[in-house]
Simulated assay, not measured.
Amino acid sequence: MHPDTSPATTRPDAVMSDAEAAVEARRIIADAYRPAPTTPTAYRDTSPLPTRGDTPPVIQPGRPPMSQGATDASVLMLAGGAMTAMVGGTAAVLMYVSQYADPLVCGLVFGAPTALLLALARLLKGAKPEPDTHHHYDGPVYQDQRNIHTRTTGVWAKTTNQP
């Protein structure tokens, strides 16, 4: 235990002897070089997780959970926004530097490649052929393929299914 060094017990006019100063110096040095307490800073629970439970799911850091289609659309919108910002920034710099550029002409010149790329992307997306479906059966097979047309009308929803 360390001696009490609160202001009530310490006199300002007190002078330490050489022996007391040496003891106090050893105590200060020992406190400085004392190893840090071994309090754990992390804990990993290795017990197996239950397959079911009443604990609600926790949102994880990063992008929120989305379907693959929503994720693809999100990335496409981010890329389109970046491309639009780059094209618009280039047009703005060109008009500012030249002090003569016509905004309509710049809009057509810089907008045409963007419109062309979007049109080509739409064309390539629509040009994918339907995948071939091959069924291989071993034994007697009965296939029933029907198309059902559903129509829902009215304030009180009435659904009509017709083959």
Score class of each variant (00 low, 15 high):
residue 1 M to R: 03
residue 3 P to R: 00
residue 4 D to Y: 00
residue 8 A to Y: 04
residue 9 T to Y: 02
residue 15 V to W: 10
residue 17 S to W: 03
residue 18 D to K: 08
residue 20 E to Q: 13
residue 20 E to P: 00
residue 22 A to Q: 04
residue 25 A to I: 05
residue 27 R to V: 04
residue 29 I to G: 08
residue 29 I to P: 00
residue 34 R to V: 01
residue 36 A to K: 14
residue 40 P to N: 06
residue 41 T to Y: 09
residue 42 A to V: 06
residue 42 A to E: 14
residue 44 R to T: 12
residue 44 R to K: 11
residue 45 D to R: 04
residue 45 D to P: 02
residue 48 P to H: 08
residue 52 R to C: 02
residue 56 P to E: 08
residue 57 P to I: 05
residue 58 V to D: 03
residue 59 I to P: 02
residue 59 I to W: 07
residue 64 P to Q: 04
residue 65 P to F: 02
residue 68 Q to R: 12
residue 72 D to L: 15
residue 72 D to H: 09
residue 80 G to Q: 08
residue 82 A to K: 03
residue 83 M to F: 05
residue 83 M to G: 01
residue 84 T to L: 06
residue 84 T to D: 03
residue 86 M to F: 07
residue 91 A to Q: 09
residue 93 V to L: 15
residue 94 L to Q: 06
residue 95 M to A: 15
residue 96 Y to E: 13
residue 98 S to F: 02
residue 99 Q to K: 11
residue 101 A to Y: 05
residue 101 A to N: 09
residue 102 D to I: 08
residue 103 P to F: 07
residue 103 P to N: 06
residue 104 L to N: 04
residue 106 C to Y: 07
residue 106 C to R: 01
residue 107 G to Y: 06
residue 108 L to D: 04
residue 108 L to A: 12
residue 109 V to F: 12
residue 110 F to S: 09
residue 111 G to M: 11
residue 112 A to P: 00
residue 113 P to D: 13
residue 115 A to D: 01
residue 117 L to W: 09
residue 117 L to G: 08
residue 124 L to P: 00
residue 124 L to F: 15
residue 128 K to H: 14
residue 129 P to Y: 10
residue 133 T to W: 05
residue 135 H to Q: 08
residue 136 H to E: 13
residue 138 D to R: 11
residue 140 P to D: 14
residue 142 Y to W: 10
residue 143 Q to R: 14
residue 148 I to M: 11
residue 156 W to T: 10
